[in-house]
């Protein structure tokens, strides 16, 4: 007897290429912006916890912006054409498998790049 999840996948299959494409788009954006936040934190001269708080705040803003500019408009245009995009899981389920992954993956994706540019620009500005 297959599990409920397997049955769901059988009934509504997923496209692997689209999954990979979407997560790669998000990943590229997040690793690019993380080093940008490092530049900002270095210029502001943040230290210890406030720097990580800065990163947390801005990566959340990134994800939020991505959501409002990329995901929300597409879902509005598709719901007018009559596809059932707003079934279970809502708008996000159209493009990403798990909402938790979408909101939190950015924190770990860019942390290394953030710390790299943070320390670099802190050293450059305060030298």
């Amino acid at each position: 007897m297959p599990s409920q999840q397997e049955l769901d996948l059988q009934i509504s299959p997923l496209v692997q290429e689209s999954l990979v494409h979407n997560s790669r788009t998000l990943h590229n954006l997040q690793s690019l912006t993380a080093s940008l936040f490092g530049v900002g934190a270095g210029i502001l001269g943040l230290e210890s916890y406030s720097g990580f708080l800065f990163y947390l705040l801005f990566s959340l803003i990134t994800t939020l912006l991505f959501y409002t500019l990329r995901i929300a408009p597409a879902s509005i245009s598709s719901s007018s054409s009559g596809t059932g995009a707003s079934n279970k899981g809502g708008v996000l389920a159209r493009y990403f498998r798990s909402p938790l992954d979408f909101w939190t993956a950015g924190l770990t994706n860019g942390l290394a790049g953030f710390i790299l540019t943070w320390t670099l620009f802190y050293g450059l500005v305060r030298a």
Partner: peptide
């Protein structure tokens, strides 16, 4: 940030039927 987000390539639906 706004510039980079606007520059990302459009997403594709992951459900096979869509």
């Amino acid at each position: 940030l706004i510039g980079l987000v606007l520059g990302t390539s459009p997403l594709r639906p992951i459900q096979w039927r869509e």
